[in-house]
Design a binder for these strands. Structure first.
Length: 350
DNA sequence: TATCCGTGGCA
DNA sequence: TTGCCAAGGAT
């Protein structure tokens, strides 16, 4: 690491002092106090592959309901999963709880990158980011923003992910020893507001005079990426059962795999063809419309069956959740889509 | 190393 | 409508 004597780190920090985004987990630049490690950790996990706009509301709700890592550690699993519903990548929520319980047992967060990276859900990026932002450690923080900015600054035309080692070297060469937390956040703010993936605003960039891609007129073309695979389509059927007293028949999904640990409507595994698998003996009605949803690596068409179940119903799969306890917002998005369509069908019948 | 794992916004 | 993209981690 260097100290930024060439002026680039200093120029970026000066820009950050004037233009830092106001974010609820952040301490504004220039202040001596450090941010709460709990809030830094929570925000960093939520922000993994997720936009600031999507995270804001979740962060506010989590920190209101669980203001400390000890409070979160004591929470019920189902409450945390429900509060995370809709944010995606649900392994993050499961690891969040595991991590909170380890940290609460330790009496606080480790203050080094190596110590942080031992914890569930904290990888190389997040460990470096927490160490730098919360504990002022001089770590090299490399995320998607940094990769994009470095690829442009140094005109790296090797496609990602092959370019990662070279990008890391360049990132390390620019990282200053002073104010590492502010510097890390400054590069991310630069990537989020100026050095954006499409149509970068090079004309107002604090690094415009240092950027080789801009000099070549190709900033928007970098970084290059390997072509992506086409998404296949899968099919399935979801069973939305409502008991006579208004309770809903739901199923907790397995801990591992897609939507792991989340609530969902019973049904057979999704595949190349939809398979009928009613979770209880009843007259199931095809509502005639499908829920469409696209996951990271496949499209899904989900047929929907509804039934009114008797009070003495003993389902083969799933459990009844009372009308009072059921919150549609506890469902992952695809299951929420199914519910919205099924509810319309129930109301149409009645 | 490659694959799996969500979602919503936007061009 | 379709594809792309966002502060990655686990296996």
């Amino acid at each position: 690491m260097r100290d930024g004597v060439d002026g680039r780190a200093g120029a970026l920090l000066a820009w950050y002092d004037a233009h830092a985004r106001d974010l609820p987990w952040r301490v504004p630049p220039g202040r001596a106090d450090r941010p709460d490690p709990y809030r830094v950790w929570l925000s960093e996990v939520m922000l993994q592959q997720t936009t600031v706009a999507a995270v804001r509301g979740y962060f506010e709700r989590f920190t209101t309901r669980w203001p400390t890592v000890a409070a979160l550690a004591a929470a019920d699993d189902a409450d945390v999963m429900g509060e995370w519903a809709g944010l995606g990548y649900y392994a993050r929520a499961r690891n969040l709880l595991k991590c909170a319980r380890v940290v609460a047992g330790m009496g606080g967060f480790p203050q080094t990158r190596a110590g942080l990276q031992e914890l569930p859900g904290i990888g190389p990026y997040t460990a470096a980011a927490i160490a730098a932002i919360a504990f002022d450690a001089p770590e090299v923080v490399v995320d998607g923003n940094v990769e994009r900015v470095m690829a442009r600054m140094f005109r790296i035309e090797t496609p990602l992910p092959r370019a990662k080692p070279e990008i890391r070297e360049k990132a390390a060469s620019l990282t200053p020893d002073a104010r590492p937390g502010d510097y890390a956040q400054a590069v991310m703010d630069l990537g989020a507001t100026i050095c954006t993936p499409k149509s970068p605003a090079c004309g107002i960039c604090p690094w415009m005079d240092h950027c080789r891609a801009r000099a070549a007129g190709m900033a928007a073309e970098l970084p290059k990426k390997e072509p992506k695979k086409a998404k296949p389509t899968r099919y399935g059927i979801a069973y939305v059962g409502r008991r006579a007293d208004g309770a809903w028949l739901l199923e907790r999904r397995p801990e591992r795999g897609l939507l792991g640990g989340m609530l969902g409507w019973p049904g057979a595994e999704w595949g190349e063809v939809a398979q009928e698998a009613p979770p209880a003996a009843a007259i199931w009605r095809d509502i005639g419309v499908e829920a469409r949803h696209t996951f990271t690596h496949f499209h899904l068409y989900l047929g929907i069956r509804t039934a009114t179940l008797p009070m003495d119903c003993v389902p083969e799969r799933g459990e009844f959740v009372s009308r009072h306890d059921f919150r549609p917002s506890d469902l992952p998005t695809v299951m929420r889509k199914v519910f919205d369509l099924a509810r319309d069908a129930f109301e149409t019948v009645e």
